[in-house]
């Protein structure tokens, strides 16, 4: 399932559409950045409520397929700029991390 498919099915709001055809290979939920970079897998959709610029660095280096900011958290301007600069898919959602992870799991099977 592609980033665009997941975004549509989960009714996400797009902030940066860098590579919608990238395959989403799983998911990871977390806000502690060192934890996330060490445990999120390449290609995972990363669900978080963190919205500072370091989120872009972690997503780029851990090679996650998309960032989903939960609970209507908005990216700060620097995060937005860095996501565009590094070609990262960045979305927001009104639901919480639990609901998003549950629905993502159902989608990915």
């Amino acid at each position: 399932m592609t980033v665009h498919d997941v975004a549509k099915q989960l009714n996400l709001t797009c902030c940066v559409d860098a590579d919608g055809q990238r395959t989403v290979e799983g998911g990871y939920v977390g806000d502690l950045l060192s934890w996330v970079i060490g445990k999120a897998g390449a290609g995972h959709a990363w669900i978080t409520i963190m919205s500072n610029p370091n989120v872009a660095a972690v997503a780029m280096l851990a090679d996650t397929s998309m960032i989903i900011l939960a609970e209507s958290v908005e990216p700060d301007d620097t995060l937005l700029a860095k996501a565009q600069q590094h070609g990262l898919n960045l979305y927001t959602a009104s639901e919480g991390a639990f609901e998003l992870a549950w629905r993502l799991h159902e989608l990915l099977g």
């Binding site: 502690l32 060192s34 060490g38």
Partner: peptide, 12 residues
């Protein structure tokens, strides 16, 4: 508060 300090740096 920035999301660091999880004590995972050297272990990672």
């Amino acid at each position: 508060e920035l999301g660091f300090g999880a004590g995972m740096g050297l272990p990672n």
